[in-house]
């Protein structure tokens, strides 16, 4: 068997091994799980090392000053490792604080625009006059839903006044309709992804056509052993 063909066999085996998990947790799904975690971690390390090398070659080795900064960053990076030291564990908080600080800063400045200002502005800019009635109606509905849902989530107001009850009800109904539709829409993606795997198993191009050859046999072996084992255990009881 050529290496390429063996690769396809591996692909078919791991694909089906994952789906045996639907039946129950079993040695095949466990192999898939541990191989995946191991390989993915290795991939992550390789990927980061590659990234570090590119950073050094591409950017930081150009000037003396940058080289020093790069080395300093590496030294700080090593401090993470002190998490495992009983005495000096607190040192790991320094790289942590640098990381958290930078990203909290980035988050503060991006969230305010992307999630708040832009959303508020596009809601306030919804027109109800000078356009066709259907769009006007939709815009009005959108605005009301946004305002009611926002109000629904307030934490620190005693929602006792009479108007709260209909507002909250309306918000909850709108949310349920919205969540339902998002759920329903996602069915499409999930089915499509599985259809993609089925196409792989059936060897439909661009997938390697050899997969079709392996699919029934691997499926038979996996299912046969699992069902056989369970049947054997049942009858022994």
């Amino acid at each position: 068997m050529s290496v390429e063909l063996f690769g396809v066999l591996l692909g078919v085996f791991f694909t089906l091994a994952v789906y045996t998990f639907l039946y129950r947790e079993n040695p095949y799904s466990r192999i898939a799980e541990y191989v995946f975690i191991g390989a993915a971690t290795g991939y992550g390390i390789a990927y980061d090392l590659d990234w570090l090398k590119n950073q050094w070659v591409g950017t930081w080795s150009k000037t003396m000053e940058d080289s020093i900064l790069f080395v300093l960053a590496l030294l700080l990076a090593v401090l993470w490792y002190f998490r495992f030291s009983k005495r000096y564990f607190f040192l790991y908080r320094i790289p942590l604080a640098i990381t958290v600080g930078t990203y909290i800063g980035l988050a503060l400045r991006s969230v305010v625009f992307a999630q708040v200002i832009e959303q508020v502005r596009s809601t306030a800019a919804l027109k109800v006059v000078g356009i066709d009635p259907w769009t006007a109606f939709n815009n009005l509905v959108t605005m009301i839903i946004v305002v009611c849902t926002l109000a629904y989530f307030t934490f620190t107001v005693r929602q006792e006044a009479a108007f709260w009850k209909p507002v909250n009800k309306f918000a909850r109904y709108a949310m349920m309709i919205g969540f339902g539709s998002a759920y329903g829409y996602t069915v499409l993606t999930r089915m499509s992804l599985f259809i993609g795997r089925v196409q792989f198993l059936l060897g439909i191009p661009p997938n390697p056509p050899e997969a079709k050859m392996f699919f029934p046999w691997v499926a038979l072996v996996l299912l046969g052993t699992l069902l056989g084992y369970d049947y054997y255990k049942k009858t022994k009881k």
Binding site: V141, I145, A174, M175
Partner: peptide
């Protein structure tokens, strides 16, 4: 309409 509006409100609150 409803789904987008709900998402927008949740996004503002989340922000």
């Amino acid at each position: 309409i409803p789904n987008m509006a709900v998402n927008r409100a949740i996004m503002i609150g989340g922000g």
